[in-house]
Amino acid sequence: MSITKQYLKSKPECKITFCVPAKDASKVEVAGDFNGWNSAELKKYKNGNFKAQFNLPVDKEYQFKYIVDGEWVNETEADAYQWNDYAASENSVLVV
C-alpha cells in the first residue's frame, strides 16, 4: 500500500493518490473523514493495483481506512494511527 502526496502550487490543496496492491481482491474502497466516511471505490488496474485520487485542503489531518472485499484495513504507510472508540480499532491518519 502507498500514499503519494503532490502539493498544488495554484491553491492550498494536495493531490492524494491512494494505491492498494490487491491482485486477488475484487473490490477496494477508501472511507474517511475527508468523504464523510462514505466509501469511494478505487479503480482496479491490470497490474493488480487499485488507485484513487482526491484533492484535499492542506494543514489538516484526515482519518481513513481501506475496505478490501468488505474487510476494514489500515494503510501500512500512514503518517500515524489514531484510536477510534466507535470501531474499537485504530484508523490510519494522513497528514497534509
Rank of each mutant, 00 (worst) to 15 (best):
W83F: 14
W83R: 02
K65P: 01
Q63H: 07
N38R: 07
N49L: 09
D24R: 13
W37T: 09
V30P: 00
K60P: 01
E29A: 15
N49E: 15
N35C: 14
S39L: 07
N55W: 05
Y7W: 11
N91C: 13
A52V: 12
P12T: 12
A40V: 15
L42Y: 01
K60E: 12
N47A: 04
Q53M: 09
F34V: 10
E77D: 12
D79N: 10
L42C: 00
T17D: 01
T17K: 13
K65F: 04
E77I: 05
M1Y: 04
Y66R: 02
A87P: 00
F18A: 01
F18R: 00
P12N: 15
Y7L: 11
D33H: 03
K27Q: 11
Y81D: 04
V93Q: 01
F54C: 04
E41N: 03
A31V: 14
A80C: 04
I16M: 02
D79T: 14
P57F: 10
V58L: 10
K65M: 08
K44H: 07
L94E: 01
S2M: 07
S92A: 12
K60T: 07
A25W: 04
D59R: 13
G70Q: 05
S39I: 03
K9I: 14
V96T: 15
P12S: 14
Y86G: 02
P57C: 12
S10F: 06
V20F: 08
W37L: 06
T17P: 08
I67E: 02
N49F: 09
F64T: 05
A87V: 04
P12G: 13
A88N: 14
Q53H: 01
